[in-house]
Amino acid sequence: SRHTFEINGERWTVEGVSEELKEILRAAERASNDEAERLLRLALKLI
C-alpha cells in the first residue's frame, strides 16, 4: 500500500509498506527533528 508523509517540511511517498512501518512513519511526522531522524533510520532498516 502507498503512504504519504511529511517530515521537516519534506513530503515522501512510499509504496508496499507494512502497517508497522506506517506506524513508525506517522510517529516520525509528529516527532522533533532529532527523534524523527532516529525513527527514519530505524524504518530504513526494516525496508
Rank of each mutant, 00 (worst) to 15 (best):
S1W: 12
S1Q: 14
S1R: 03
R2S: 15
R2Y: 15
R2Q: 15
R2K: 15
R2G: 09
H3G: 06
H3S: 03
H3W: 13
H3N: 10
T4S: 08
T4K: 03
T4R: 03
F5E: 00
F5G: 00
F5V: 03
F5C: 05
F5H: 01
F5P: 00
E6F: 15
E6L: 15
E6N: 08
E6S: 05
I7M: 03
I7K: 01
G9F: 03
G9K: 02
G9A: 03
E10P: 01
E10Y: 08
E10Q: 13
E10R: 09
R11F: 04
R11A: 08
R11E: 07
W12M: 04
W12T: 02
T13E: 07
T13Q: 09
V14C: 09
V14Q: 01
E15P: 04
G16C: 12
G16F: 13
V17H: 06
V17Y: 07
V17A: 15
V17P: 13
S18G: 08
S18E: 04
S18W: 09
E19K: 08
E19V: 08
E20V: 12
E20I: 13
E20Q: 11
E20G: 10
E20Y: 13
K22S: 07
I24L: 12
I24P: 00
L25D: 00
L25Q: 00
L25M: 09
R26A: 12
R26F: 13
R26K: 12
R26D: 09
A27Y: 05
A27F: 05
A27M: 13
A28W: 07
E29G: 04
E29V: 05
E29T: 06
R30Q: 11
R30A: 13
A31N: 04
A31M: 06
A31T: 07
A31D: 02
S32P: 01
N33L: 14
N33P: 15
D34S: 11
D34G: 14
D34I: 12
D34A: 09
D34L: 09
D34H: 12
E35S: 04
E35R: 05
E35Q: 06
A36H: 04
A36M: 11
A36G: 08
E37G: 07
E37R: 09
E37H: 06
E37Y: 11
R38A: 12
R38I: 13
L39A: 02
L40I: 10
L40M: 07
R41G: 08
L42H: 11
L42A: 03
L42F: 11
L42V: 08
A43V: 15
L44P: 00
L44E: 05
L44K: 04
L44C: 05
L44T: 03
K45F: 12
K45T: 11
L46A: 07
L46Y: 11
L46P: 00
L46M: 14
L46V: 06
I47F: 07
I47S: 04
